[in-house]
């Protein structure tokens, strides 16, 4: 009796801790988990996220000092947009990349390594179009 009680006292907190940690991991590490995203939630795939990080996020984020870029498009706010606005923004991404208007020439003159490779541009555009198509179908 005494022994089993001791085991209980040690194992219960330990198991709870493991359980909480696992839950936390699956919650915050959703990018790598296998659970499908909820229906209405935009989850930016890792390869697209990397492209955003490299070439776009520097200006298009909430903390950016580039006011014009901030007004136009915030990557960190994209998943929280209404479906209508999300479709518009996704199509705008496609248009801007297609026309080579983004990233801007001036910016690329300073940071040539931030330019999109043809493969990256293609992947980004295909993702934007496919995602907006999907949103329109729902």
């Amino acid at each position: 009796m005494k022994k089993s009680k001791k085991v209980f006292v040690i194992w219960l907190p330990a198991l709870s801790a493991i359980f909480i940690l696992l839950t936390a991991f699956s919650y915050f590490g959703s990018g790598t988990s296998n659970t499908p995203p909820p229906d209405d939630n935009l989850v930016i795939p890792e390869n697209i996220n990397n492209i955003f990080d490299k070439s776009c996020f520097g200006c298009h984020n909430t903390e950016s000092k580039n006011d014009k870029a901030k007004e136009k498009f915030l990557i960190d706010k994209l998943p929280g947009l209404s479906k209508v606005k999300m479709v518009s923004k996704l199509d705008k991404i496609n248009e801007m990349v297609e026309k080579n208007e983004m990233p801007p020439e001036k910016f690329l003159a300073k940071f040539p390594d931030k330019a999109l490779t043809p493969e990256e541009a293609k992947a980004l555009r295909e993702w934007a179009v496919a995602t907006s198509d999907l949103l329109l179908k729902k």
């Binding site: 007004e71 479709v87 518009s88 199509d91 705008k92 248009e95 329109l136």
Partner: peptide
């Protein structure tokens, strides 16, 4: 197209608003 309408309306809203 539907998409172009949505994109254009978003641009109208943004450009006139700002």
């Amino acid at each position: 197209s539907k998409k172009d309408k949505l994109k254009t309306l978003d641009e109208i809203s943004e450009m006139v608003g700002e």
